[in-house]
Amino acid sequence: MESDPDARPPLVPAGPLTAGQILGGAVRLLGIAPLATVGLPVLAAMVEFVLLQVVALPYGRVTGIPAADLAAVAALLWVVLGSAPAAVAFVVLDHAVRGRRIGPAAALATGLRRAPGLLAVYVLNLLVVALVAAVGLIPVAVLQAIGTNSFYRLVAGPVLVLSICAMGIYAWVVHVSLIVAGPAHVVQGFGVLGALAESRRLAPGNWWRTFGTLLAAGAVVAVLASPAALPLVVVGVPRVAAGLWAALVAGVVTPFIAGVIGLIHVDQRVPWRSFR
């Protein structure tokens, strides 16, 4: 009997996954079709760097480039540009979990077709979380509408702090519940709203496991990315060299985070057997 040339050992064992298996699988993902999983986010980060320079140069002559403004522009730009690398990583991961090989060209073609929908999922996710967080401002707005005497000024401050803290925590709860909407869209083929609904369907009973795994992944990224980011803060490093180095760091961090989220999705789907 001939062996399947497209077969390979599955990326992770069948059944529920531990946090260590998820993190280890995300690291191993970097070596699978690296031209697609690593090369594409490097290219996307380089494009972002060039676009930021185009925005920053004329903007800085007028305003001095406020750091907060530029950071917000960079974050929003990466949501747009990062959707394609994430979609490709989800495609490669799906094949690796099934024990199947996929070439860079096929991964890119499939991922790029899914990227616009994934971008819509990300944007809608951000809007939902932002709306939830904004609810924390309602009590303060009500207090301001009632009056402006000393009592309301005294109460408004603590109420604002408590409301923002409460809604911030709840927004994070909602965000974790929607975290696997991306792979649900790319891998399972759900539409934008269907992917968010599927993530919410899988969330009950998995929230703390998901939160803990994301926390561990964030710690890994912080430990690895902090030394890697050192050249970016050294005085005298040319801007172009710093931008290229940041692109290389993004080439590792982006597929790793996508791999963690994708494997969380796999782990959540195990009891439902929906990926068999």
Rank of each mutant, 00 (worst) to 15 (best):
A33F: 05
L77P: 00
L17Q: 02
P16C: 08
P104R: 04
R209N: 12
A72I: 09
A229N: 07
L112F: 05
L17W: 11
R61L: 13
G191S: 08
Q188V: 03
L215I: 09
D4A: 09
P13Q: 09
H95I: 00
G99K: 07
P204M: 07
V88P: 13
L143D: 10
A133M: 10
R200E: 01
V237T: 09
V235N: 06
F256K: 06
I257W: 05
L43S: 09
A250V: 09
A203H: 12
V253W: 00
V260S: 11
L35M: 14
V135H: 06
D6F: 11
P183Q: 08
A229I: 02
V50N: 06
P158M: 08
P183R: 11
V234W: 10
V128T: 13
A145P: 15
F275C: 01
R200K: 10
I261Q: 15
A229M: 02
V155H: 01
V174Y: 04
V176Y: 15
L215A: 15
P66T: 03
P5L: 05
W272L: 14
L23Y: 03
A184Y: 08
V234C: 04
A74W: 02
T254C: 02
V173M: 13
G39H: 05
V97T: 13
R209H: 15
P271N: 11
V123P: 08
Y59N: 04
G189I: 05
L143A: 02
R201T: 12
D6L: 14
G194Y: 03
A258P: 01
D6V: 09
P238A: 02
F211S: 11
L40A: 01
S83Y: 05
V253Y: 00
L196T: 04
A219M: 09
L160F: 05
R209M: 14
A45M: 06
G82W: 04
A130E: 12
A197D: 07
